[in-house]
């Protein structure tokens, strides 16, 4: 149990004012240092699950434990254990890359010296050093994705939640982001990742869970899943498990 990064037990959740449960009797375990992928069609509950794990949404039934601590009972200081890369850009477009990193670094609990050091390090690693003083609103889509990621890892989180971190970027940026995520994982960061880019998942994730209508319909490493369902690739597996009907 001690190597569990995330433990979800009997979780149920519904959005206020909406009928039916979005998640019900949901159980999941993600191990520390793992690269874990959550996949499913639109509306399957992936983002909802991520928001519940990060405390953005509040649940009434069941429990979620991050690094052994109950999400519901934690205080704000607990948030420094994880980082979130939301699907939407989450920064101030009027501020430069350095100004955004300085502000979010301070909010993540870093001091002035740490912020400066980490800012230089991240801008260099993610290829944004030449644009450090440019307002991020003027960045290209790929640069915005990279700064979105940089902000989330400013404080060296132990768990990193990534909600479609490469959506709308070119091949080079996708490659750079995946490479950086692997580097973070090698340094000990647990990655919890959602995406519709199935080739990316094959490249990045050690274990995946397929979610549909608020339930896990398959969970294992990719090789076992493909063998079990007699599929050659993740896309075939995805369609076999979730069907071909539209999910809007």
């Amino acid at each position: 149990m001690s190597n569990l990064a995330i433990q979800i037990e009997d979780l149920a959740f519904s959005y206020p004012g909406r009928s039916g449960l979005c998640l019900s009797h949901f159980n999941l375990e993600i191990f520390a240092g793992e690269r874990f992928g959550l996949f499913g069609p639109n509306g399957a509950g992936k983002t909802t699950l991520m928001h519940l794990m990060t405390g953005l949404l509040h649940y009434k039934q069941g429990s979620i434990r991050l690094l052994g601590r109950d999400v519901k009972k934690h205080n704000k200081a607990f948030n420094s254990l994880f980082g979130l890369v939301p699907q939407d850009f989450s920064f101030y477009p009027e501020l430069s890359a350095v100004e955004n990193l300085s502000f979010f670094g301070a909010w993540s609990g870093l001091n002035g010296m740490e912020i400066k050091k980490r800012t230089d390090e991240l801008l260099e690693t993610l290829g944004l050093n030449d644009y450090r003083s440019m307002p991020v609103g003027k960045f290209s889509g790929g640069m915005k994705r990279r700064i979105n990621l940089a902000i989330a890892v400013m404080h060296h989180p132990q768990i990193l939640f990534l909600d479609e971190p490469t959506v709308g970027v070119d091949v080079q940026t996708r490659h750079a982001i995946i490479a950086y995520l692997k580097y973070l994982n090698e340094k000990g960061t647990t990655l919890v990742y959602t995406s519709h880019q199935l080739n990316e998942a094959e490249e990045l994730c050690e274990r995946i869970a397929m979610i549909d209508e608020g339930n896990i319909i398959a969970i294992d490493n990719l090789e076992n899943l493909l063998n079990h369902h007699q599929q050659e690739g993740l896309e075939g597996l995805f369609l076999t498990l979730t069907g071909k009907a539209y999910r809007d």
Partner: peptide
């Protein structure tokens, strides 16, 4: 804004 979502997940 998206930044608000991030602020809510930070330890402040």
């Amino acid at each position: 804004s998206g930044s608000f979502m991030r602020l809510r997940t930070l330890p402040t």
